[in-house]
Design a protein around this nucleic acid. Structure first.
Lengths: 211, 211
DNA sequence: TCCACTTGTGTACATTTGTTCACAACTCGT
DNA sequence: ACGAGTTGTGAACAAATGTACACAAGTGGA
């Protein structure tokens, strides 16, 4: 066709990644997406795919990289906005939920990828979660909020926090994005879970550890 | 072909479900399986599929039903074997891990389905988890292990326990089934998480609840 | 300006897929 | 033992898929 080309290089790459996310957001599972389907959604000819990705797994890996950026932006915002310790958890959860709504497809992709088909994507997402958990450890140390906990116990606590929040994703993707009531319920429930965990951490004695 | 037929009726149905699980166990994602692929793995002609299932979603739903049986067997064993309260969590986790290893493909399917493609399967699995959580509540009440907790708080605690255990599935499917060292690590870590949660529950005051 | 390079297009093709249909074999109640 | 219903088979086909190849359109450095 005599259609005008876009100027920016790499535009198609972004269109393809976004197309995949869009399909995921429409209820499809990433593992079931095909090259033709993605290019169709992106409004691009099938062969264009190979200019940017080797296969769908490759696209998945690059999505994980971008997911990393999304998570880092979220952490930054959390660090800036959570100043008083007493509302730490409500606010953190609120920021999390808000980012999930803002980047819904990315987080659905993340929830799918944890038990997805590509081992590499699986490991990539797990690695992001580990990083998130370790950053959380650092922050709690820095804020002097976990002074009675040993390193291993603090790490365990943060890990549990991250898992709990991550699992709430499977709740979030089960409700419509505009069902404010349900989302509010999930927010409250997750917050209470975190509070329960921190009460546990506060009363944890290192001697509890086996071995 | 002049091959001999099996006598039992419904044999093919089981073969198909098992074939799907086998493929899942081999690293495939359920959402990416096709009818032909499953029938091929089952050693059956493609059209035989339609004798038992409307489509792949239907097969998924019937797998969820069977998964329910597996979970119930696990609960029964846990109730029989966990007698002394002090080792409650170690033993429960051990039974869980053992069942996961014994029915590995079922549990992988479960982990996949939580963020899977079929909304119905998703809801089915979530419903199984809710049931599991409520049974756990009953057991704790019966064993007089949570007498200071209100119903809502006990429910929250059990929910968190179930989520934590369920999330550990994503760890378990990431390691080889015979990597005993890694599995032992996951077992220990999960146990400690549960202990942390119960320390939290033990020191939880109902007043913590917002609203 | 020209030339190498990258990015996108269109055509092509062998495979694979879901599904239909007519037929064979087995099961069971009478 | 026979006829109805169920379960499995094989051939068939339109549609979709992954991938290869040759070519057009843009880009940037000399």
């Amino acid at each position: 066709m005599a259609e005008r080309k876009r100027r920016k290089p790499g535009e198609t790459r972004d269109k393809l990644m976004e197309a995949a996310l869009t399909l995921v957001g429409k209820g499809r599972h990433f593992a079931s997406l095909g090259i033709r389907e993605v290019t169709r959604q992106a409004g691009v000819v099938p062969t264009a795919f190979y200019r940017h990705f080797r296969n769908m797994d490759d696209l998945g890996l690059q999505l994980v990289d971008e997911l990393g950026l999304v998570l880092r932006r979220m952490m930054r915002e959390a660090r800036q906005n959570v100043l008083q310790a007493d509302k730490l958890m409500e606010e953190s959860v609120a920021i999390f939920i808000s980012h999930v709504q803002q980047n819904r497809n990315f987080f659905i992709f993340m929830a799918q990828g944890l038990a997805g088909e590509s081992r590499a994507v699986q490991e990539g997402i797990r690695s992001e979660l580990r990083f998130f958990s370790s950053e959380l450890s650092n922050d709690l140390r820095r804020l002097r909020l976990a002074e009675h906990l040993g390193d291993a116990d603090l790490e365990l606590t943060c890990d549990l926090v991250v898992r709990t929040v991550a699992f709430s994703l499977t709740d979030l993707i089960g409700v419509e994005p505009d069902d404010d009531y349900q989302i509010e319920q999930i927010k409250k429930r997750t917050t209470r879970c975190l509070q329960l965990i921190f009460v546990g951490a506060a009363n944890w004695q290192t001697g509890n550890r086996p071995e």
